[in-house]
C-alpha cells in the first residue's frame, strides 16, 4: 500500500457529517478498511479520463413530466401510527439546536 489515503481524523469528520457515532474500535477498523478500498479505487488514476463526460444516468430517455393534477394524499393516522413519537398530529422531536441553513 502506498501513502495513507484517509486518516483517522478524516473518518471522524466524515462520521459526523453522516450522523454516525463510531467507537474507537470502529474508527480504527473503518479507517484501515476505507484506506484499503480507496487504495484499490486509485487504480483508475492510470486511465486517461480527460476527454470523457461523467455518466450520471446509465440511460437517457425522453422525460415526460407530471400533469399538475392533485392526487391521493396519505391518511394521516396511518402515517403517524408509524412514527416513534407524535403530538397534536405532528412528529415530535427533541429540541433542535440551530436554524436550518
Amino acid at each position: 500500500m502506498g501513502q495513507q489515503r484517509i486518516t483517522r481524523a478524516e473518518c471522524v469528520h466524515v462520521a459526523a457529517l453522516a450522523r454516525l457515532e463510531l467507537t474507537d474500535e470502529e474508527l480504527d477498523r473503518f479507517t484501515g478498511q476505507l484506506d484499503e478500498l480507496l487504495d484499490h479505487v486509485a487504480e483508475v488514476e492510470a486511465l486517461d479520463l480527460e476527454a470523457l463526460a461523467p455518466t450520471m444516468h446509465p440511460l437517457l430517455f425522453p422525460n415526460p413530466l407530471r400533469p399538475d393534477t392533485p392526487g391521493e394524499v396519505l391518511n394521516r393516522d396511518e402515517v403517524l401510527d408509524q412514527a416513534p413519537y407524535v403530538e397534536d398530529g405532528q412528529f415530535r422531536v427533541p429540541p433542535v439546536l440551530g436554524e436550518a441553513p
Partner: peptide, 13 residues
C-alpha cells in the same frame, strides 16, 4: 423522526 427506530437523545441531532 418519521418511522422506524428511534434512540433518544437530548437534541434532535
Amino acid at each position: 423522526v418519521r418511522y422506524g427506530l428511534r434512540v433518544d437523545g437530548s437534541s434532535t441531532s
